[in-house]
């Protein structure tokens, strides 16, 4: 049994600091080295560059629908009838699982543009089927109305509206 002198204590402290500094810096370096290996799985520059799609609406007749591809996903562009619009607007929002007025989901009421991917588990819904005249997802039975809102079934949210703008009356740019 010995007692430690102040010098020894100092020595121990200096040593501990050294170990912590070396270990800490080593850990920081390792973490920094790991980042490129994670980041590489994110979309590459060429994929990001393709992030907009333009669509020509002039050929879509009232009541019909066009599917275009944006970022590898189907985009439904529906030319809605008066009836579609009326039924989309005439809904008690309180009854909806994901309440959202139709006016928030369109730029021009006759054109509904949305990502055609079921918000449940990613299947592509079928048009003109289901109980609400909109879309029906065959995978697990989600029903969407003429505004693409979820009405019945397991999906938690309305079909997503992508960012888009009208370039002129007949052309939109998605993304």
């Amino acid at each position: 049994m010995t007692t430690t002198t102040p010098e020894e204590e100092n020595g121990v402290k200096r040593r501990d600091f050294l170990y912590i500094a070396a270990g800490g810096l080593g850990a920081v370096g390792t973490a920094a080295a790991i980042w490129p290996f994670i980041s590489q799985m994110n979309p590459s520059a060429d994929v990001l560059a393709l992030s907009t799609t333009e669509a020509d609406l002039s050929g879509i007749e009232v009541g019909s629908e066009l599917t275009v591809v944006w970022q590898g996903k189907p985009i439904f562009v529906r030319h809605r009838t008066e009836q579609d619009i009326a039924s989309a607007e005439d809904v008690d929002l309180a009854t909806l699982p994901d309440p959202q007025p139709d006016s928030e989901r369109v730029i021009k009421p006759e054109w509904l543009v949305m990502i055609g991917i079921c918000t449940h588990l990613g299947c592509v819904p079928l048009k003109g089927q289901g109980d609400y005249g909109g879309w029906f997802c065959p995978c697990h039975g989600s029903h969407y109305d003429t505004s693409g809102r979820i009405r019945k079934g397991p999906a938690p949210a309305n079909l997503v509206i992508p960012p888009y703008e009208f370039l002129d009356d007949n052309n939109i740019k998605i993304g």
Binding site: Q40, S44, A45, D46
Partner: peptide, 25 residues
């Protein structure tokens, strides 16, 4: 291997894709 394509028509360009476009490729 996540970004490379083992095909004679694509191998060379896929390596350049790694060099130019992939993050930290």
């Amino acid at each position: 291997a996540m970004h490379y394509t083992p095909h004679v028509d694509h191998a060379f360009n896929s390596v350049e894709h790694i060099m130019r476009d992939v993050n930290y490729g």
